[in-house]
Write a protein that binds this DNA or RNA. Structure first.
Lengths: 161, 161
DNA sequence: CGGCGAAATTACGACCGTGTGAGTGTGGAT
DNA sequence: ATCCACACTCACACGGTCGTAATTTCGCCG
């Protein structure tokens, strides 16, 4: 079926972003002004202006939310993203994000993971990114079906209605 | 019976404990007063008294220190220990401590771990306890050789390397 | 077609948890 | 009895969160 321009290009407002990612608006605001995640499409430009977040932004935010939920300090999250932002490429859907204290890696197989476990001295924080994307997508279609086409640009196995 | 300066049975003073575990004395003090880890052998009983930590206490403290170093919030650590304290039994040396947000488990094989990874939605924090014990032991013999016998009388998994 | 009211959003400031530092007094070992 | 290490009591710094006020934009009605 043909491509439609139904407003999906408009991106996500602050409020909707917070809803989708399941964080408070306060957190989103705080993270933006402290340079953790700034909206890619439109940054704030004075009081009353509106931030516009891209779909990719949502994924980053959801990763952060997951990290926080697991009890990781925001300071640590900042370090991870300083290093990871470049490497958070296309394969967001399949890899596992592994943090071992100060370093962060993307790992694809479970064997690699066990390898890290035996060598590593400290704690390993492991986050399957596939689940993150799924959660965000589900939340978008559930709350804002109009924007469903944004999530569809990644090939999926099963056919949908 | 001349009671000599054995020291081994006496446990570890506050200062030495902090040194061995590699935390500040202020942290040790703070954690004791806020009921995170209280000394098993002798708790504080007013100004001038002395806390006495057991070897097992050292292990707990080192686990906490590791968790903290990996960027986990103290609040989360408290939750983990509230649940884990009972289960932190004999096999301290070989198991892996796994935290998935609100629950904590001890896992022995890598396969179990991969299993958890596929089912789990959020972040898994994995800490190999063997490394913790090794670090504590090494630190004890290095700083206080007199107490080396304390580390030996705890059962270890046979044939580790 | 334009202005008004209300909702959405940014900006500001108070508050909480964690940890540190200095100062004091008390108990234990010599 | 004396000395020193340690526990205890404020006071505070700092990162992070949250409630609230100030400001802009948008929808609606005349």
């Amino acid at each position: 079926m043909g491509a439609h321009h139904t407003g999906s290009e408009a991106g996500f407002s602050g409020k909707r972003t917070a809803e989708i990612v399941d964080i408070t608006y306060r957190q989103l605001d705080y993270w933006a002004r402290t340079d953790l995640v700034r909206p890619s499409l439109a940054d704030a430009s004075g009081s009353g202006s509106r931030r516009q977040y891209s779909y990719r932004d949502l994924l980053e935010l959801k990763v952060i939310k997951s990290l926080l939920d697991s009890g990781i300090r925001l300071e640590q999250v900042r370090k991870v993203f300083a290093y990871m932002r470049n490497h958070l490429g296309e394969d967001v859907a399949s890899a596992n994000l592994v943090i071992d204290g100060s370093n962060s890696v993307l790992v694809n197989t479970g064997e690699e993971l066990i390898d890290l476990l035996q060598n590593g001295q400290g704690v390993l924080n492991v986050l399957p990114l596939a689940g993150v994307k799924d959660e965000v997508d589900a939340r978008i279609v559930s709350l804002y079906p109009d924007m469903a086409d944004v999530v569809a640009d990644v090939p999926r196995a099963a056919g949908d209605a």
